[in-house]
Nucleic acid binder design. Sequence first.
DNA 1: CAGTGAGCGAGCTTCCGCTTGACTT
Length: 712
Amino acid sequence: MNNLVVVESPTKARTLQKFLGSKYQIEASMGHVRDLPKSELGVDVDKDFEPQYIIPRDKKKRVNELKKAAKGINTLWLATDPDREGEAIAWHLAGVLGEDKSTKRVVFHEITESAIKEAFENPKEIDIKLVDAQQARRVLDRLVGYKLSPLLWEKVKKGLSAGRVQSVALRLIVEREREVLAFKNEEYWVIEAELSAADPARRHPGETQSVSIGSERKDSIAEFTLERSEGLQNDKKTFVAALIEKDGKKLAIKNKEDTDGHVKNLKTCEYVVSKVTQREVRRFPYPPFTTSTLQQAAANRLGMSAKKTMMLSQALYEHGLITYMRTDSVNLSAQAITAVRSYIESSIGKAYLPKVPRIFKSKSRNAQEAHEAIRPTDVRTQGLALRGKGDFNKDHIRLYELIWKRFVACQMNEAVMDQTAVDVKAFQSTSEESPSATPGTRKPTSGVYTLRATGSIVKFDGWLKLYGKDIEEDGDEAKQALPKMSENQQLHLIELLPSQHFTQPPPRYTEASLIKKLEELGIGRPSTYAPILSTIQERFYVEKIERKFIPTTLGITVTDFLMKYFADIIDYAFTARMEDELDEIARGEREWKPTIRTFYEPFEKKLELVERTAQKVKMEVQFAGKKCPECGKELIVRIGKFGKFLACSGFPDCKHTEGLEEKVNAKCSLDGGDIVIRHTRRGKTFYGCKNWPVCKFASWTKPKSSVPELIK
DNA sequence: CAGTGAGCGAGCTTCCGCTTGACTT
């Protein structure tokens, strides 16, 4: 064997083997093979930031196997991803394996026979400028993380962590919480009027359409349905319009008294259509999935965590069902587009196929685009085909179907809606005038209310047939069906519907909305979104309650500390500026070491200053609202290395503590006490009796029944 | 299978980004 090819992943290795044949041995590196040591800084700041690279323990075995495979070969081909990290992996591989042999870098953006052939016929050198950009990124993150964290140990609490990414994620959650807590509800009222456009003289059978856009359920992908209610709705000819103006001025109603006044006036008004506007609106499909958008959609539509989404998609990927799941690209291969277009034409309908394929562009400025978008590898494989196959469960199938639908929909025709807005004027009628008079001629100039009704009719469902709209976009569009109306048409008031409302605070972040925000800020990468969410929870900086992130007192304290002294580093734009400089390094317009020095020198000064002058931070005391059973003092909530617990405020005189363990619906088989979730020192969860240490019951698995077992 | 907080002051904690298994607890 004369040729060894190294790629990152075993799946990519298998695919490549098919194209390259038996003349090449292909091995996977399993990601990076060298890194800075975990146990120390590993950056010599006095020697021009020279990084100290080692082979991490868990990579030793793989590297030894690679070394064995590289023995005696003539050519080492480095076929890692065409991006910053991929180039660095190639460089490290060359350093570990490449001595005394020819080393070639091959770059391809899609795994097709022609692209691979082209790459192997035109090998390159390793681009050291791109490697330097990666080294700068790596060293910067190490310096920030490994300098700030120990400062937190000293000034706040041991074991804490800070970093360019996690500290910003935490800051977002803390600041949002403050907005929520500072928010003052304001009362406002909405007055709606149910009106009838019935006209006994004329009927318009079939003129109205009732449209129900399948409401998005968390547990299923709603199918878009279009129902035509032939005449059913028409008989009523009623609709709802909301009060918006009085005498041409916007109305903001703040209380019940004003509402009652308007309602009283409106009761005796005449209602006339003043304006009907209709416009055609086109809705374009979403781009195919990237990691971030897949995680968001799986959370919003399927209720899956980012972690679960990644585990499921990994399995789909390894079985060859989808393309690579860690990507920031929305690009699609030419073959995939050809295949899906033919699928749409033959299986969905010619009307759904656009004349030309849709090309999507990446929105995120920091996208590195080493992979395709996430899509099914074969559009002809439907989710149903996975049923009962291999180790796939229901969730694998649901996720696959989501990916499949999003992909097919992205190459379908846009949906076309007719949006109608009807303005209605309401004013006091003058009784002397005959009812046959033209309504428009007797409009008074003051005391005129304007009401507006909006409706939407889908003329062509297009891609919505498959994918539907995203939840957050739902609701802004009224979906009522409006009867056919014309200007100056007289309407009849059926009922006035005043309702009290309160302004709502901004929503707390969910996994989905936080990932979305981080991606917008260019913070984090496809491989790190899910781990970031885990990190800030493992440190007890935030808690997830009913799917929403809420900071703990610890998280708030850490954020306040960092904001006070290192606001520039947890600035939302810090990463964006860093990326600009990394790009300059990659283009050869800047050197990495001076770039790091420019950052580090003031940072180091600040570190010294804070270390010398800052007081140890006292965390805000959180009372538990319970008295200590031993000494009667207040219990307080503390955060220890296993999470929250209750402790006596009289510490250290009183050492009483209480666990805050999560209860499970089960009773102890020994003494009938509640079973609670506990953790070993190493963090593994187990189930134990609440009455420990009196009762010694413990189990790795969840005890099933809440009924105590019979004594034999 | 099991505890947290103070200080005493061992020995250790910590970053981001790339990728999958695993010398068994």
